[in-house]
Amino acid sequence: MAAPPCWHILGFGAIGRLWACHLARAGVSVSPVLHSAERLRTYPGHVTLCTDAGEAHFTLPGELATANTPIQQLLVATKSYATEAALAGVAQRLAPKAPIVLLHNGLGPQQRVADAFAEHPVYAGTTTEGAYRDGGERLVHAGRGSSFFGPLNARARETGEAALEPLLTLPLEAHYDPAILHRLWQKLAINAAINGLTAVHDCANGELARHPEYREAMAQLCQETEELACRLGQPLFETPLFDQALKVAEATARNYSSMLQDVRGGRPTEIDAINGYLCREAERQGLALPAHQRLLEAVRARHPNHHGD
């Protein structure tokens, strides 16, 4: 029996590493695509996955975008603002009809990639898995969650879930959802209510639920998001968005959002693909979202060299 095709991973942060380790554990060949020759020089070629069950070590040889091996399957786990440039860097290596799976926060890049790579099955994913890097090449799988993947373009809808079988059969709770856009909107709505506020107030998620001023700000954001979603005919949740956002903030009370971590680390944030996306969609509808606009500008001010979507 032939070995399964290699999965190339673009974006080798916590989530990219988590999926890479689990694919390797399942016997699938994995190649991280690293962003620079310096990073490749310092990368030891392995990752240690730390879970409640202990530590496991995986050999994951890295390569550069300029390598000449064809890419048969590609998982893109970059930040939203880096997705399109990262894909452009490996586009010439994509085998015909190679599936592309996008796994990042926000909305905007997914639709553009689906259009630009129409000859490839393009899928999007969303996950609530919790993982973080603990220095060097150690990865801590801090919280079990669930993931959903689904088609973004016609080619992916024709291909169906067969292309994603290696991702869906791992010991991570992952499912195929033909209506993935609904899942992406739900994740976007929650992130837009939580991440930016934690970045501005430099607080853990749970503080948003406990602090009256922060709760009120979250309620305003949720109200505006629901108004836009209604205008677009985009369903969100069966219960009010604010209730859902509070539930997530309380369930992840000790967590620090990725956006806050980016602000603390002096890195660009994904605010333009989250609250910024909502503001742009609202403008197309002739709708004002003042709470989202204020938050967008406040987060941008913390990183003047932000990346637009």
Rank of each mutant, 00 (worst) to 15 (best):
M1T: 13
A2M: 07
A3K: 11
P4S: 03
P5I: 13
H8W: 11
G13C: 13
G16Q: 02
L18N: 03
W19K: 08
C21L: 10
A24P: 07
R25Y: 11
V30S: 01
L34H: 08
R39T: 13
R41D: 14
R41A: 15
R41K: 14
T42N: 06
G45S: 14
E55H: 15
A56K: 14
H57G: 06
H57Q: 15
H57D: 08
P61H: 07
P61E: 14
G62A: 03
G62Q: 14
G62F: 14
A65S: 13
A67L: 08
A67N: 08
N68S: 15
L75T: 02
L75G: 00
A77W: 06
Y81G: 02
A85K: 08
A88Y: 07
V90L: 05
A91D: 06
A95M: 14
A98T: 09
A98E: 11
P99D: 07
V101P: 03
P109I: 05
Q111R: 12
V113A: 06
A114S: 09
A116D: 13
F117T: 04
A118W: 11
V122H: 03
Y123P: 12
A124R: 07
T128A: 09
G130W: 02
Y132G: 04
G135C: 13
L139W: 04
A142D: 07
G143P: 01
G145H: 02
F149H: 01
G150N: 12
P151A: 13
R155G: 04
E158V: 15
G160L: 11
T169Y: 00
P171D: 08
L172H: 03
L172D: 03
A174D: 02
Y176H: 04
D177H: 12
A179Y: 11
L181M: 11
H182R: 12
H182K: 03
R183D: 10
Q186W: 11
N191A: 11
N195I: 05
L197D: 02
A199R: 00
H201K: 08
C203D: 12
L208F: 05
L208M: 09
P212G: 01
M218N: 00
A219I: 01
Q220I: 02
A229F: 02
C230H: 15
L232M: 13
Q234I: 06
L236C: 04
F237L: 12
P240R: 02
Q244Y: 03
L246Q: 02
A249N: 07
R254I: 03
S258Y: 10
L260F: 09
R264K: 13
P268Q: 12
A273G: 04
N275E: 05
N275I: 04
G276E: 00
Y277V: 07
E281C: 08
Q285Y: 14
L289H: 10
P290L: 11
H292R: 02
Q293G: 04
L296T: 10
